[in-house]
């Protein structure tokens, strides 16, 4: 369990995060808020890249102030927004193996994990390709595989679908769904409300460095989101107008309406 208690973080004498409490288990939590609201700063506390100025962050009982990022990387995997910021090896295999090797695992285990991680993101058979030669969606999935191979229980995904076309975005979404069903806790940083609606069970909303909402996704979308610079997905409005109520996608809405007609 990830346990954040009264987290404050100041940068250059300016408080960027204030009084944040957060508990997280094996669920999909969307972390949303305007640019500069502190989403990435909060997420970087979970694997120790940033340490709290006040308060504490605990991951499965480990206090992040007492452990290095490398130690915490076994627990919390952080997939950065731009996958190219991590690729430096000649082949996909070596790229994915980098993390497990850093953990000091033996080569048999490393190979096993690379195979498993590449299968999890549907990149089997890519072992000998060069990371930079992959398409945008493949790069994003490879970045996830690089982190997965370290078998973290929790995953932080920073804007995983931004800049991808529909098909590539879909394959990333399916990967996230599968990881969740396998028991990973996932923190999704995003501006994409359709993605939140589709994937999240719970939403944490940050505003000016404070947590202003933390609850189920249905409840989140009943807030007046304009106050926070966010927009409601149109399918939700359609659901309201047609009397169906809360739906997560157009196909769900269509199904509900077709069911009514019968």
């Amino acid at each position: 369990m990830i346990r954040v208690r009264d987290l404050h973080f100041a940068y250059d004498g300016r408080e960027v995060l204030r009084e944040i409490d957060l508990d997280m288990e094996s669920e999909v939590v969307a972390l949303v808020g305007q640019n500069g609201s502190g989403k990435t700063t909060l997420a970087k506390h979970l694997n120790g890249l940033l340490k709290p100025t006040k308060g504490s962050v605990e991951v499965d009982g480990l206090d992040t102030r007492e452990h290095t990022v490398a130690e915490l990387s076994r627990k919390v995997g952080y997939v950065f927004q731009n996958p190219e910021h991590m690729f430096f090896e000649e082949t996909v295999f070596r790229e994915v193996a980098f993390g497990p090797r850093n953990l000091g695992l033996d080569e048999d285990e490393v190979e096993k994990r690379v195979k498993w991680a590449l299968r999890s993101v549907n990149l089997e058979g890519y072992e000998d390709r060069t990371p930079y030669s992959l398409s945008g969606g493949e790069k994003q999935r490879l970045a996830i595989a690089c982190i997965l191979a370290m078998k973290p229980r929790y995953l932080v995904l920073d804007e995983p679908t931004t800049g991808l076309d529909a098909k590539n975005g879909e394959s990333v979404i399916r990967t996230i769904e599968r990881l969740h069903s396998e028991g990973h806790g996932i923190l999704l940083i995003t501006h994409d409300m359709e993605l939140v609606l589709r994937l999240a069970e719970r939403v944490v909303l940050l505003h000016d460095g404070r947590k202003v909402f933390d609850g189920p996704v249905e409840e989140f979308f009943s807030l007046d989101l304009h106050d926070y610079g966010l927009d409601k997905p149109e399918v939700l409005l359609l659901g309201e107008v047609t009397g169906v109520g809360f739906v997560r996608s157009v196909s769900e809405l269509v199904k509900a309406l077709a069911g009514d007609g019968e």
Binding site: K44, N47, L49, T68, A70, M86, F87, F88, G99
Partner: peptide, 30 residues
């Protein structure tokens, strides 16, 4: 980039001068 690599268990503080220099490729190439 350093943050991204640290998240993959990369530790620049550990090892001899040569090991550390070689580790820097993980930052220099991206």
């Amino acid at each position: 980039i350093m943050d991204a690599q640290k998240s993959r268990g990369w530790e620049i503080e550990k090892g001899s001068f040569i090991t550390r220099a070689r580790k820097m490729t993980a930052v220099l190439i991206p």
